[in-house]
């Protein structure tokens, strides 16, 4: 399911939210701040909210 996820840039440390579906075909991603491709999905925003 496509939903907003928390992403983190492994290069510059930038945290941001972007749509993601772990099961769907992948698209090329880059950090909106530094353009690096070292970006990582942390968890879905919904899941993060449920936790806190």
């Amino acid at each position: 399911m496509v939903e907003p996820w928390n992403w983190k840039c492994m290069r510059c440390g930038h945290d941001y939210v972007e749509e993601y579906d772990p099961k769907a075909a992948m698209t090329e991603r880059s950090c909106p701040e530094c353009r690096s491709n070292s970006v990582r999905p942390i968890e879905s925003v919904a899941k993060a909210k449920a936790k806190s």
Binding site: M10, R11, G13, E28, S36, N37, S38, R40
Partner: peptide
């Protein structure tokens, strides 16, 4: 530290 592993196209 996961940042020690990097990815670039």
């Amino acid at each position: 530290r996961p940042e020690r592993l990097q990815l670039e196209w």
